[in-house]
Nucleic acid binder design. Sequence first.
DNA 1: TACTTCATTGCAAACCTTTGCAGCACCACG
DNA 2: CGTGGTGCTGCAAAGGTTTGCAATGAAGTA
Lengths: 393, 393
Amino acid sequence: MGHTCVTATTTSDEGAAVPVTIRDVARASGVHISTVSRTFSAPHLVNPETRVRVLACAEDLGYRPNRAARALITGRTHNIGLIIADIANPFFPPLIKAAESQARHRDYHVFVADTNEDPTAEEELVHALAKQVDGVLLCSPRMSNSLIEQLSREVPLVVVNRQVTGLPCVLMDVGQGARSAIEHLVGLGHRSIALLGGPRSSWTNREMRRAAGAAARAGGAELTMLGPNAPTEVGGSAVAEQVRRSDVSAVLAYNDLMAIGLIEGLDALGVRVPQEVSVVGVDDITLSRLTRPKLTTVATPTAAAGRTAVDMLLQQDIESPRGARGSGAGTALGVRRTTAQVMLQTDLVIRDSTGPGPYARPARPLAAPRGPGPHCPAGPGIPTAATGDAVAS
Amino acid sequence: MGHTCVTATTTSDEGAAVPVTIRDVARASGVHISTVSRTFSAPHLVNPETRVRVLACAEDLGYRPNRAARALITGRTHNIGLIIADIANPFFPPLIKAAESQARHRDYHVFVADTNEDPTAEEELVHALAKQVDGVLLCSPRMSNSLIEQLSREVPLVVVNRQVTGLPCVLMDVGQGARSAIEHLVGLGHRSIALLGGPRSSWTNREMRRAAGAAARAGGAELTMLGPNAPTEVGGSAVAEQVRRSDVSAVLAYNDLMAIGLIEGLDALGVRVPQEVSVVGVDDITLSRLTRPKLTTVATPTAAAGRTAVDMLLQQDIESPRGARGSGAGTALGVRRTTAQVMLQTDLVIRDSTGPGPYARPARPLAAPRGPGPHCPAGPGIPTAATGDAVAS
DNA sequence: TACTTCATTGCAAACCTTTGCAGCACCACG
DNA sequence: CGTGGTGCTGCAAAGGTTTGCAATGAAGTA
């Protein structure tokens, strides 16, 4: 595999891992194991003096409760699963980071799994993880809604970037975003605009089409549909030629990667952005600030989505102690769970890839306005720290 | 939090999760639970007829072995932990993706945790994860070597991007990369070169300084040390002014983010890249192909590092069954583990951010050579699919 | 004083699986 | 027929923890 082995020694490891259990602590502090257990899981039930003694011993011995054993009996693992279509896709890392952070604040650990965009892998992963987690975040899933519903009976689910009735969902308001983008372009004097679509099965994609269409009609502009294409740089550059031949003066792309690819492609054809064609992306991935021209884009609150999704999952979990105790009564009778669907705001971030169109009024002559522009209706321009979608459902 | 709640319904969930255990399968197939267990964990010990019957029942009931319970007795969790300095740093996602993929191929699940660059968090995380995993990958750790050694007695560790004697390490040959870069620049006619350093405590940083210094001496060029700076875009643009005032005609940056930041900064000062100053990065993050000019950079095999690290961890694990059975004998006597240190090759990828320097021979007049150039000694230019470091140790 | 209440602690079952050991049936061999 | 082996299966302990119940003792109440 093209690597060089520098060193290879064989040593006997001396400090073997000595797993210290609740029993050791009990012995050391002269109480029964149940008292030790209670010291950690129900401190108010043990005498303060005993408690400090036990805690001291535990500290001394470096005791840490064994979560697996605890899970076995409580039915709660204090783990959650994150199922991601493609970790390398720049849209997801900020989401993962935020979700993991939020989970850990609440004393949960996070499994992360990459499906490589494969719906079968998604299903398999949910099954495999089910027993090991208290819930799963499905991020931009590729499988069918009905399968998702079915799986949700096996383990609590929260879905990100997909609307599934009856299940808690976290959605980003790309409809609003698309509307803002179109209004921004119309305001700049563009009357013939193209929408470069992403994956057909994507909820985001459908929302964008709907909203962009309506906004174009309202603004008296014509909207051409391009694609659907792969939500990647390549998928963007692929339509450059088509855009050049057409009479559109502005393009709204499904995501930033496609927008950047398109700009590259246009550049190769000698078409200048934004002078000849304006381009708007969606996601505001880090990248979009570093390309030239800097990309005008609809920022999606990815980090907030991760946090919110974890919150929803945990809140749902708290109510229903999974993994029924043997005690029989009271377990499956009328468990109620609150399923909310949350829509997060998006924000248009105006940078350098959009400029005046053929019908621009001569009032503001050349330079595109900087910062959250007048066409951003989502509040007084609260800049979301978000990043990029890409392939999202 | 700036979100709108669209729907919120309360439903009673009907298909409550019915955890099916080994006992259910046993009952259904008319055998003892131990036979069911063996059907899964030691198939050769059970009668083929029984086996198919059991498997059929298991399939029917949707049985999945409970890994937590299994872990409790075998001492092997079939989980590994990935401790990452910053998931959002573009260097890491490809590494995570590769590691997760490799792990899952071997039937391991992966915990991912983000330390936010905090050494204390790293330590805490190792402790917290220790009981739940069979081993931990420490990626570009921030803590001291001695602490790492100490922690390695609690749980098997593999370290990425850091050299710790006695522990398995996966390193990238940035020394070789820096040498190639300097040789490339010297070959282009640069005689005064700057090295823009990253974090002082970084192993990568030290290696680069050492190798770049030697290569410059050998090539008759002068090497100026800049930094150390934060390994980010900002850290790069911060030295633009300094570079402009100096007489260096080329800069090798600690990583791509810094290189891109520097190019931005120079551009703002009216200094053109590569016409007036050449810039080389390290990592080959996706981004570096999309900026303009496209970045010449030393590609680090991030994905390979992830795979290799997982392999090393698992190989090490196989030998030593952690979590000693009560049986007493034979557990801690002379367990041997092989600790190898692997160095992965890097490749210089020549793009558009480097060009002829003041001492260029008129032979090849203007255009920088494309593709893996003649100065890349690392084999016949196998292009590594790698990406970006950033902040890496 | 007798009875209740309360705080604290111990006991033991339970969670789900693995695994050493023993039992059984069967066959072959002597 | 006896002996040994082999192939398969059952039994029960073990792993670390939680938790309902009971036991203890002390304090409070009538």
